[in-house]
Nucleic acid binder design. Sequence first.
DNA 1: GTAGATCTACTCGGATACGTAGTGTCCGAGTATTGTCGG
DNA 2: CCGACAATACTCGGACACTACGTATCCGAGTAGATCTAC
Lengths: 157, 157
Amino acid sequence: MSEGVEWALHSCLNLAWIGPGRAVTAARLAAYHELPAAYLNKRLQALARAGIVTSVSGPKGGFRLARALDRITLMDVVTAIEGPDEAFRCTEIRQQGPGAGHPRTYAAECAVAGAMGRAELAWRRELAAQTLDDVRQRAELQAPTAPERLRRWFANA
Amino acid sequence: MSEGVEWALHSCLNLAWIGPGRAVTAARLAAYHELPAAYLNKRLQALARAGIVTSVSGPKGGFRLARALDRITLMDVVTAIEGPDEAFRCTEIRQQGPGAGHPRTYAAECAVAGAMGRAELAWRRELAAQTLDDVRQRAELQAPTAPERLRRWFANA
DNA sequence: GTAGATCTACTCGGATACGTAGTGTCCGAGTATTGTCGG
DNA sequence: CCGACAATACTCGGACACTACGTATCCGAGTAGATCTAC
C-alpha cells in the first residue's frame, strides 16, 4: 500500500485539530512531520479531487477539510489515494490456453476471484465502518496534550 | 497485489484436480493457462519454501501438493507469495518533526496504524477462514466438467 | 481621503525526472532414466 | 542372463536483465492582498 495513505490520514487529523477557521498550506502540513512538501501537496490534490478537502490558491490559501471528521471514513481516504481498483484483480487466466472451455462456462464469476473478493470486501467494510473521528478520539485518549501542542505550533508564524 | 497470487491459487487447484499420483512440472502448469513458465516456476518455489507444495528435481520431477486442499488457506498462499509484511506499514511520522512530543507519549500504538490494522486483520481473518477446498467446491459447482477436461489434458503427453 | 487599477507575492495544479519493486528470463545444480559393459 | 556403472536428459533453484509504478521535484496558472495613482 502506498505511503501517501498514512500521510493523508495524519494530515486530515491535523487539519481537524487546527480547526476550520483558516486554510493550511501543504508546505506547513509537511513541515510538521518533516515530509517532502511538494509530494504531500500532490497527495492533498487527490483528497481535493475526492471532495475530502477543499483547496484555495493564492496568499492565505491552502487546504481545509470539506466536511466534519465523522463524515469521512478510512475507506474514503484510501480510495482517494490508492484509487478505486481492487487490490486483487482477476485476469481470468482460467479462460486462457488449453484449459479454456465453452465461453458459456464462464458466465459465473471465477471462484478464486470470488474468494479473494470476499476477503477484500471484509477489509473495505472495516475501513468504511471507521470514521476519522473515531481515530481522532482514540488518538486524543492516548496523547491528550498533542492537539494543543499542534495548535500552538501552527499558530506560530 | 502481485499477479503471482492468482497464478499460485489456480496452480494449487490444478494440482489437486490432477491428483496426488504424480508430480507436475512448472512448464506444464504454465502451458495450461499460457503463463510464462520460468516465472511461474519462481512463484512455485515460493510455495515450496512455505511448505504448501513439495518439489522434486530431475525427470518425472515437478511439484505436488504438500497437503490436502482443506488444510491450505488462502492466507497461506497469499503470505507465501506476498510475504509476511502488512500492506499498511506505519512509519511513525507522528514522531517526526516539530510535532514530536515526549517519547513516553508514543508508548501506545499510533491510532492511525491501529485503525488500518483492524481493517487488515479483518482481511486476513477472511483469508484464513477460507480453504482452497472451499474454492474448489464452488468452482466445481460452476463448471462441473472442468476437472475432467483438465485431467484429460494433463494425461496427454 | 477614497476608489480604482495595477503590481506583487504566494499557493495550488499538473507536467517532468528518479528510484525501487515487481516482472520476466537465463543458466547451473541435482536426480531418475537409459544404455552399456562386465561377470 | 543379470547386476552395476556411467552417460544422459530433464527439472528445479537461484542469479541476472527489463519494465512499470510509486516517489520526488519543479515550474506555470491563478488569486488575494498591498501599493500606487488619480480624482
